[in-house]
Design a binder for these strands. Structure first.
Lengths: 212, 212
DNA sequence: TAGATTGTTAATCGATTAACAATC
DNA sequence: TAGATTGTTAATCGATTAACAATC
């Protein structure tokens, strides 16, 4: 299948592709030239045919008996996921989580480049160790419009998430990665990706309970 | 269905239950006494029958035309998810992400209580603002055994994740919440919950691409 | 009572897994 | 060539959605 083909890719596949990418980059660094789907599957404890299928969504092509050329596969996956050019994003809330995301060394390799952060707390303003400027939120509109950014990352307190997100949309933001536990009510055309830490705790505890 | 019933609950349901819990707690605070599945569904943009089904897994029971008693529903979900008594956990890596998790105000409400943190960087040792002690990793075994903790949260750099996780297992840790992008290779009986930030970026960018 | 909602069973939908031909 | 792997189509499995009886 070709990547241009707009048949939508299953969400689970989209989540697995970055895992492949991480593995492939490590393998590439160690000097390996080719890798097979069964080998990827073994490393990540997945089904081999599932890996083949996931890869086929990206338009990658391999050779029977040999596998896929690693450098080529990396490029194809990156392009497919939109990781080939990091999209610019702003971050809201320069607390611990926000600072953590700002200092993630290789977010840029995974599609996102945080170009500015905002906070209402004046003591947090200024340039961070990771070189990103933390700006007072009153300058939000001005900066968004100047930078022409379309993506925002929400790491602010949940209580202000709805209000801030509405402001963001009115300033032209089209996609929001929401790391607060609040369900945002926004126009349908705004893309929202919710990430809940709590959901993962629930899964962990459930697995632990059943493992005994 | 009764909660004692060991039929395993679908993973998507387990992930949704904490969302319900968050909504219910907010509603409870505002003084509402009852809530119906269709209302929960509307608030969270889900299918009403899906909410009914998810709730039935927990053993909750409601009344036709009225819905569920909120305080009762909260207790039932908390008990079902194991959120009624926060499980003690240690945290590895007191960097930004680790500090973020340590200062999450209501993690305890969502099942996890971080009782100590470890780092190899002496400059990070001591008590954090959230009151959790950051201890040098050389004392790992001693402290784990003294506290009898079974859960660990990995927020350390990926390069040391495999090594540290093996050490943890040898000290008696039985469940690991892995926030590094590394796939851990551990004995089958160890419970591992992987959380990848990158997967969420992939989903966000994909939705954005298809929304235009 | 009438009608909305619960709770369960059945139908549908979609992802995973299996099967298998093509191929290097 | 023989055999492992790709790549695609079919079968299976599991979650979501629909249908509907019970009930407050």
């Amino acid at each position: 299948m070709n990547a241009r083909n707009q048949t939508k890719v299953p969400e689970p596949s989209l989540k697995r592709l970055p895992l492949y990418l991480h593995l492939l980059k490590k393998a590439a660094k160690s000097g390996v030239l080719s890798i097979s789907a069964p080998l990827i599957a073994k490393e990540l404890e997945l089904d081999p045919t599932q890996v083949v299928k996931d890869l086929s969504f990206t338009g990658a092509s391999g050779r029977p008996r040999i596998g896929y050329r690693i450098d080529e596969l990396i490029l194809v996956i990156e392009r497919f996921l939109g990781f080939d050019h990091a999209s610019e994003a702003i971050l809201l809330g320069a607390g611990h989580l926000g600072t953590a995301l700002m200092s993630y060394p290789d977010f840029e390799q995974y599609g996102l480049k945080i170009v500015a952060a905002f906070d209402s707390d004046s003591s947090k303003l200024g340039r961070t160790s990771s070189g990103i400027n933390v700006i007072h939120i009153k300058k939000l509109r001005e900066i968004i419009q100047r930078l022409g950014v379309e993506i925002a990352v929400l790491t602010n307190p949940g209580q202000v998430a709805q209000e801030i997100s509405e402001q963001l949309v009115s300033c032209g933001i089209r996609a929001i990665w929401n790391l607060t536990p609040v369900k945002l009510k926004l126009p349908r055309e705004v893309v929202v990706q919710d990430t809940s830490m709590y959901a993962n705790v629930a899964l962990l505890l459930n697995k632990l309970k059943h493992s005994t």
